[in-house]
Simulated scan of single mutants.
Amino acid sequence: MKRTTEQDSNYTDLDKMSVAELLHGINNEDKTVPLAVEKVIPEIEKVVNIIVEKISEGGRLFYIGAGTSGRLGILDASECPPTYGVPFDMVVGIIAGGDTAIRRAVENAEDNAEQAWKDLQEFNISDKDVLIGIAASGTTPYVIGGLNKANENGLETACIVCNAGSPVAQAAKYPIEIVVGPEFVTGSTRMKSGTAQKLVLNMISTTSMIRLGRVKGNKMVDMQLTNVKLVGRAVNMVMQATSLDEKTAQSLLDTYGSVRKAVENAQEK
């Protein structure tokens, strides 16, 4: 398989470039990523529709990956509960090597084709759920093994990869292949590939949550009020939605704990 993620950078002699030249070079490469993502929106749409259907029926969304890909999945999953007020087990990110690998690489963790399914068993994964494998190269055994076992057990499977025709894409029922080309630093897939994966994960989770009713208008009405900034944002949201004064809006939030419930109960004030 010809892997564009491993091809030589379009730039040479990086070590001889000035800081400005390096920054402009990286930025120029980054500009190509959204265009590559745009090409796969139809594939992303299919995956979102499946996720919304499954979660609506009580299912969950799982991400598996190794290294940067695994960390991006965990990042996306961990931001869903505070942003949209969903249960912590609705969107789950799993990385090869376990939580230790979030901060420090675990040697050979991604090469174990059996481990992903074992890791998923800890969450009692079933055919009600959706599994997305994330792998820039599209060749990670951990991800391939997890997808294959998920298919055998009747799950809907998808993937996010950055090479065309990869083993991971072949293992997924709904592949999303974002071909971003060679990296600025040859083979450093935490750069353009990682950016592409982050963009697609944002699109998948955000669109799914909107379709699941977790956004009203353009506001995060179910967000968790975990700090002063978010409480202030929530007060403003309630004031905008109800025309109430700040004190009354704050009182409603204190009583009901969310923007949605505060607005729903505002007519009693």
Rank of each mutant, 00 (worst) to 15 (best):
Y84G: 12
G85P: 10
G85M: 09
G85D: 08
V86K: 05
V86D: 07
V86P: 10
V86T: 15
P87I: 12
P87S: 14
F88R: 15
D89H: 15
M90F: 12
M90Y: 09
M90I: 13
M90S: 11
V91Y: 15
V91P: 06
V92G: 11
V92H: 10
G93Y: 05
G93T: 12
G93C: 10
G93V: 12
G93L: 09
I94M: 10
I95V: 15
I95N: 06
A96V: 13
A96H: 11
A96F: 12
A96D: 09
G97Y: 03
G97W: 03
G98S: 13
G98C: 11
G98T: 05
D99I: 14
D99S: 15
T100V: 15
A101G: 05
A101C: 05
A101N: 04
A101V: 05
I102N: 03
I102D: 03
R103Q: 12
R103C: 09
R103L: 13
R104M: 13
V106Q: 03
V106K: 01
V106E: 03
V106W: 01
V106D: 03
E107L: 11
E107D: 14
E107S: 06
E107C: 09
E107Y: 04
N108W: 01
A109H: 05
A109R: 03
E110T: 07
E110R: 01
E110N: 03
E110C: 01
E110A: 01
D111M: 05
N112A: 00
N112E: 02
N112K: 03
N112Y: 10
A113M: 02
A113P: 00
E114A: 05
E114I: 04
E114P: 00
E114G: 00
Q115G: 00
Q115R: 12
Q115E: 13
W117G: 00
W117S: 01
W117D: 03
W117H: 04
K118S: 06
K118M: 06
K118G: 01
K118P: 00
K118V: 14
K118W: 00
D119Q: 04
D119I: 04
L120A: 08
L120K: 07
L120M: 12
L120S: 06
Q121I: 06
E122H: 10
E122F: 02
E122C: 01
E122P: 00
E122R: 13
E122Q: 14
E122N: 14
F123R: 02
F123V: 03
F123E: 02
